[in-house]
């Protein structure tokens, strides 16, 4: 089997897996970051969302061979401690079962990185790929708005 070099959460990893192995299972079973979840296997639910160079992708349907060693992969474990999104998530008590939340938080982080003040419609667009069966949608929207205003305040200060 080929060896792949990956950069996950700023650390370099060498993994020995089949080239068609989805990034999801490399992250979970080889690198042992289990915050990224399996939900549908077809890129339909977003539970497996990670960031590649800041953009959200569905790791369950991204073969490891499509990633370059220089690609910066970020999982939930790689977010900076005390970041505004996770803090807003706690403040709004968003999670219920919690299973989809890693993917939701990464999708929200990517949105805020490119859109400092998203409208409800922007949020709906950016988050539509991430299903939550517990229905935490209104709280996620509230948390994204709260995180946006906190980030803006921090920048001004």
């Amino acid at each position: 089997m080929p060896i792949f070099q990956l950069t996950v959460n700023t650390k370099k990893h060498r993994v020995d897996v089949d080239s068609d192995t989805p990034l999801l299972w490399v992250i979970r079973d080889e690198i042992k970051y289990t915050g990224t979840k399996f939900g549908c296997g077809m890129g339909l639910c977003g539970a497996c969302t990670v960031l590649v160079n800041g953009s959200p992708i569905r790791s369950c349907s991204t073969p490891v061979s499509t990633l370059k060693p220089s690609d910066k992969i970020t999982t939930i474990e790689g977010l900076a401690a005390g970041n505004a999104v996770q803090e807003a998530w706690i403040e709004a008590q968003v999670p219920q079962c919690g299973y989809c939340q890693s993917g939701q938080i990464l999708a929200a982080s990517a949105l805020l990185a490119t859109n400092a003040n998203p409208s409800d419609a922007d949020i709906d667009n950016a988050m539509a790929g991430n299903i939550c069966r517990c229905g935490t949608y209104p709280r996620m929207r509230q948390a994204i708005h709260a995180a946006a205003s906190k980030i803006q305040k921090t920048k001004k200060a």
Partner: peptide, 11 residues
Amino acid sequence: VTSKVDGTAIF
């Protein structure tokens, strides 16, 4: 909630 936000909750 905290462990469900930082990915450490064990399912």
